[in-house]
Design a protein around this nucleic acid. Sequence first.
DNA 1: GTCTATACACAGATAGAC
DNA 2: GTCTATCTGTGTATAGAC
Lengths: 195, 195
Amino acid sequence: MSKRADILTATRELFWTHGYEATSPRMVMDASGAGQGSLYHHFRDKQRLALATLTDIEAQLSAELGSTLGDTSRPPLARIRAWLELPRQALRGCRLGRLAFEHALISDDELRAPLARYFGGLQTRLQTALADAKAARELPADLDPAPLAALIVSAVQGGYLLSRVHQDAAQLQQATQGAWQLLELVARRPRLEHP
Amino acid sequence: MSKRADILTATRELFWTHGYEATSPRMVMDASGAGQGSLYHHFRDKQRLALATLTDIEAQLSAELGSTLGDTSRPPLARIRAWLELPRQALRGCRLGRLAFEHALISDDELRAPLARYFGGLQTRLQTALADAKAARELPADLDPAPLAALIVSAVQGGYLLSRVHQDAAQLQQATQGAWQLLELVARRPRLEHP
DNA sequence: GTCTATACACAGATAGAC
DNA sequence: GTCTATCTGTGTATAGAC
């Protein structure tokens, strides 16, 4: 079982740097210390290795949401802010999001599923927090949670993209800061509809 | 000169679908009708072909900004809204942005330069429009344009990503709609700082 | 300029020994 | 389970004829 775990660990790391298509069996072997035999014994082909790896990453990232968006002891907006301001490796990108533009991955529904599940869950959690914020009168009642959740996720994913394009970690911080700036402004102002 | 143009046109299209690393000389030859000889006559290697192609795309995308962000006959916020609501091929992604997560491209400063120029220019135009909006009292004076510009670009780029992950064009519209929702709300409310 | 022929390394996988 | 050997196709070019 040790080699199988080594292979998965190495593949997770390689996907983070090179993505799916640019990661070859040879790279996995070199990085994990496993031979060709082990690799193809544990995983029928590259697609199966990728499926196991992506499911692994999905579980890790989903679990990491618990301490911010999942911390129901804090007020809803504070949970969103905590998630926005999480420390991130801006130049490497999101371990799942960065794979979204690979054609071979996204056109394979099995490989796409872990990405869809993770982002679907993230968006649902954000929508819930936004709805809670409305109920607690932290946010105006006329805000639509679904588009806002999509925007907040996009702030982080688009921020990663800008950081890579400019090779500047500050770009991601600017994007999330821009999102919080607007949210806070909307939150602090009383609703005119109820004078 | 005809073959050179054919090669560039074919490569632009292939980059949009497959990206840089996954596009091979053979694919370019098949798609353009050019032979090996023509390809390597006009472009020394794959990197040079990519550089010409990316510079091409950059010029096209930059030119397309003229009718929205560049239309100074409209009020600043209307220019931003027009750009946000431009029709886009959500499932294909941004022709330049989608390349930002390819390691071989982003780690080559020559290939990264067209992306950095395009997004830099876009962010500058948005910052200018936001500053104009503040000057025209369309937006509150305490807004910081740089983070907001990064957020607005991120709304589109992150929206593309969500559309691909979910294979659903509506995701991009949600993200841009979320951005406009917040901007409009901030714009419509009078500033409490000046009662 | 454009073509065909050739070259070498690597991707992605199979076979079979231990 | 893990290893080494082997195999076919492709990526990325170069050489040289037309």
